[in-house]
Amino acid sequence: MAEALLSAGKVTKVFGGLTAVREVDLTISPGEIRGLIGPNGAGKTTFFNCITGVYKPDGGEVLLEGRRLNGLKPHKITRAGIARTFQQIRLFGEMTALENVEVGLDARHRAGAISAIFNLPAHRRDNKEGSAEGLRLLRFVGIDRYANEPARNLSYGDQRRLEIARALGTKPKLLLLDEPAAGMNPKEKEGLMELIRKIRDSEVTILLIEHDMKVVMGVCERVAVLDHGEKIAEGPPEQLQKDPRVIEAYLGRGAVEDAAGA
């Protein structure tokens, strides 16, 4: 087995008195598409936020290729090689699609203020390389025809794709997708699954939060299940479908909630 790309050990996050994530372990090998599922409020996005530095974990540690990420600022973690998309789309609305991707690409650029002010070669090279690579990424996710369109004018599905392209711009080793299929129609979902596989084939490892089981089953080799902030199961999707704890987490509580909420 190859060395782990991401290894999260006993990650814990507490809000007030509520433990949103409790001692979650997760190890991802390079080249995987890993799923992360669980009922609403199970702590999936909180776990994402712990990995990407939006929250500081209260316990445990996160290693990327053996390098400790705890306590780093989000932009440092991005530069270390983890990129993400958001559950609620968060594009830079008035920038064009291309500029959005360029912001991601800039994470790899080094030319600073002085270089820009005096229009030094480093800056020119960055800008040129940025537009070319940005266009390539837009083509990769299939929306290059909207390169000069302000991001907010794109359709919902295309905005999701643009978010992925922007994240890929940071040249991540690991890409975290937070419910990318939300709000998509079946045809768009098909396209999305294809895109996810294509991204994996370009040597980016993927961790995917998703509610849509068809998408999860379709692309993930292994899936981890969170419930109440704890990891309750992990394995190939077919196996999990039969796992009584997983069924209980989804159906049991769902039934209870339905009764209580009515």
Binding site: V54, K73, H75, T78, F86, L91, F92, G93, G104, D106
Partner: peptide, 13 residues
Amino acid sequence: EDEVAAEAMGVPT
């Protein structure tokens, strides 16, 4: 436009 997203895209805000 969006400080959180900017930070997540590697911008040292």
